[in-house]
Design a protein around this nucleic acid. Structure first.
Lengths: 252, 252
DNA sequence: TTCGATTTGTTCGTATGTATT
DNA sequence: TAATACATACGAACAAATCGA
């Protein structure tokens, strides 16, 4: 609350607004403001940080562009939620070939504890053999199975997570992470390839062994680029496809 | 040059900076400023449009975020080029599974004139049977063929384009469109699926008939969302994959 | 319904810093 | 060195949306 705290602590020579952005992000990571809730108003933040309101706005601008915050004129600035329709399709890219966008109905196939295998450890930034949770999830579109997700998360991040909690969640998986474990997925990186799905997977997706499937390896990150989930998805691209459309959904 | 031209013509009740953005975009579309060249300085634009410099900056901010313009402190603001390393990987998403990013060496396989077939017409926004150019292009990474591109463009946009011009180009294909035909690809939309490549394609990619390939259908757009190219790519994902990584390349 | 307080959105202007030429 | 151009930061005023009294 003292004056020029920000300028004084700014030894990295970052611009002020970058420092403000870092401060806000730290507050978000620390759970200072909850998802769906409002952060302090711009005027209040300006006083708190002892900077002009324009500097605050510039910092928030970037966080809004990254879909971490959400502005609403007349109401305030809110922590983005994984139950907003806006941000929902930011992480779900499978659409019908006819063009229809639809959210999947999910079915929990299995949930068990295990150890991080080769590859998983690196992507999750944890030691080989570290404790993980392993989830298999089947996603249906228009009533038919289209995607099989094999999800791996570090057990330490989700202390009491069990099959009932996971299967009985109300919204999306990231919504569960966010609401119940204060883990906020803000970015994903996906690597796609074509491959023959393992027999079990193919059977679940209703395709024969020779039909190629889309294989998606995803790492999900929270603040500060910490990986929190590794996911391999198998997609039956008979009637659906992966849509990569930068900008089209943005304000233009 | 008269005063408040902008405010007076703003009947759509758009914010001023949106109008400025539209004006600048129109100038770009009209070829008023060439790729790689500078647009007028912010102070000059502010005088021209009779708005404050802050309004100009806000308009340019968005165009820079869309990678249409490029700012350089002390130098000016430039029309983005398809030969910039920065924007290059914005349109090329195939990377080595080991992680290496590399630009492909291309080999022109065929170039012929034809008619738009079903599907192509819709995606290119032109009548069925309209005149098109059809190009087959083989892309090699680390010396080995990895991608086969089947490119379709409206002939009317590329009047004198022939096999020699296409094959003898210096940089990328979009660089050719931009430098020689004033057609600036600024956005692409891609739809990915897994499929068995046609025998000819499989042979070119060095895979057997049963190995699945990644099929990418791309529509490339210029200003005002006009489609200028439809492209089907077949990717051998044996050693490479499609990287979809929002934000990672951006300033953070 | 109306009104007023609050909050973000837009626009203006100014001053100063930093990079380039 | 000087001029130019973008980058940062400050402040002010008003518009527009929201919400509760």
């Amino acid at each position: 609350m003292m004056a020029d705290t920000l300028a004084a602590g700014n030894l990295t020579l970052n611009p002020l607004y970058k420092e403000v952005k870092i401060r806000i992000t730290r507050g978000l990571a620390a759970g200072e403001w909850k998802p769906g809730g409002a952060i302090p108003s711009e005027t209040r933040l300006a006083k708190q940080f002892n900077v002009s309101i324009g500097t605050i706005r510039k910092a928030i601008d970037e966080l809004v562009a990254e879909k971490i915050l959400l502005r609403q004129q007349g109401r305030g600035t809110f922590v983005a939620t994984h139950s907003d329709d806006r941000t929902l399709f930011y992480f779900f890219h499978i659409v019908g070939k006819d063009g229809g966008r639809e959210l999947p109905v999910t079915e929990l196939l299995s949930f068990r504890k295990g150890r991080a295998e080769a590859g998983e450890d690196v992507r999750l930034g944890m030691p080989r053999g570290g404790r993980i949770l392993r989830v298999e999830n089947l996603l249906k579109l228009e009533g038919k199975p289209v995607i099989l997700d094999e999800i791996v998360v570090p057990a330490v991040l989700f202390p009491d997570l069990d099959q009932e909690t996971f299967g009985g969640r109300a919204g999306t998986i990231y919504g569960l992470y966010q609401a119940r474990y204060d883990i906020n997925v803000i970015r994903i990186s996906e690597r796609l390839s074509a491959a023959i799905a393992p027999p079990k997977v193919a059977a679940l997706l209703g395709i024969t062994a020779s039909v190629p499937a889309l294989k998606i390896k995803r790492v999900a990150y929270t603040y500060d680029d910490t990986p929190v989930e590794y996911r391999v998805s198998w997609v039956n691209t008979g009637n659906h496809e992966y849509l990569s459309d930068l900008w089209k959904n943005e304000a233009r």
